[in-house]
Computed example of a mutant assay.
Amino acid sequence: MKRITFVLLAFLIASVHSASAAGENIGSLSHIHSVRALGNQIILGTHEGLFEYLNEKSVKRISPERFDVMGLAISAKGFYASGHPGAGSKLKDPVGLIFSSDSGQSWKSLALTGIVDFHILETNGKEFYGADSGSGQLMYSSNSGKSWAKRGLNPFTDIAPDPKIRASVLGVKDGKVFRSLNAFKSSSVIKTTFEVDSIDWIEGSLIASSGKVLYESTNAGTSWKKLITLPAPIGTITQSSSMIAVVMNGVIYSASRSNLEFIKHQKK
């Protein structure tokens, strides 16, 4: 069997460390709202803007636009974000849905400017799912954000669009996974043997956390296998085709997909 090597990375550390020349001090980030895996990179959406996680001591600002990145989604086309403008920003408040095709170097407004602040934001191709913090509405777009449909008050704590099937999506509510085949016009429960805290779905891999345990399904949630049990409850989970990352007790664990037996390496 292949093995996945887990590397322990300090995250949201309480003490202040000096940053390397390549990046800023991770201790200077007051709130980290989103964690996304992009290839072998870990991208952070924070109260101070968009950053790349470098190591346990430093991060690198990757966007000159300083804004509160409340929602963050990444696709093959680029970065999508939502939130509030920072000091000196010319963006409207809230920013609605904005897009960057150059890894955060520049942004353009796509939709809902001055109207919506998505705290949950997920995309799959032209499809978008967003939970607006102001109205509480769950919203859906099938045309790259040009128009949006409301699906009522958002009941889900996490959302994962199907990477292959249009309008197919999963949502987590009260420890249960709900499947919809019509972009949340309706949904039904998927039976699992464990309570689900969070989910993330890319082609070939659906992962879910339950307390300290990380699971994976390769058949859209029909069956699951246990990947690893960590020493504390898992928070955010994210993945790319080359890595898995989870947040646990203010720490990021990353895992290479080169192996399938998890080995955890403690910080030295």
Rank of each mutant, 00 (worst) to 15 (best):
S141V: 04
P85G: 05
L121G: 02
K146T: 13
S82I: 09
I98N: 09
K92A: 13
K108V: 15
A76R: 14
I98W: 08
S135R: 13
S75C: 01
S82V: 06
G88R: 11
G83L: 10
A73M: 08
G86Q: 04
S106H: 12
S89M: 08
D93R: 03
Y80V: 02
T113Q: 15
N143G: 04
S100R: 06
G88A: 11
S133K: 12
Y129L: 06
S141K: 02
K92L: 14
V116W: 03
S75Y: 00
E127S: 12
G134A: 07
A87C: 00
K77Y: 03
F118A: 15
L112Q: 15
Y129C: 04
G88L: 10
I115V: 15
K108N: 06
K90W: 03
V95H: 05
N143V: 02
G125Y: 11
K126C: 03
F128M: 01
L91M: 15
T113E: 15
G114T: 04
T123I: 10
K92R: 12
S82H: 13
K146N: 13
A73C: 02
D132I: 09
G114N: 07
S142K: 12
G125E: 12
V116Q: 09
N124S: 13
S144F: 11
F118T: 04
H119T: 05
